[in-house]
Amino acid sequence: MANNPRIKLPDSVKAGDIIEVKTLITHVMETGHRKDRDGNAIERNIINTFVAKFGDAEVFRAELGPGISANPYISFQLRVPGPGTFEFAWIDDQGVKVVETTPLNVA
């Protein structure tokens, strides 16, 4: 189960700046290679897709495998076109989708 998405953006931003967007979410990222105490395989459940939109435009997308750590941290860069709102989405193998919107304050 994915929860508690966290986004870190720089405090003061001007249009045209290239900023770092840091994202983090709580998720077990179960690989599918582990077994429980009775020796039964634990079903794989990872966040397989992360999508970041700014306004209407998709600005970043990540396809993740089981080699990404639990509670996946992803950061990317964006050249700020102007004021707007981010929409971040994380989707896991069970189809659970967590969406977080974050406004970007542009001076």
């Binding site: 290239i18 435009a57 600005v59 941290y73 950061s75 860069q77």
Partner: peptide, 9 residues
């Protein structure tokens, strides 16, 4: 749109 090709994980 990214401006710089830099990613972290």
């Amino acid at each position: 749109l990214n401006g710089t090709a830099r990613v972290q994980s």
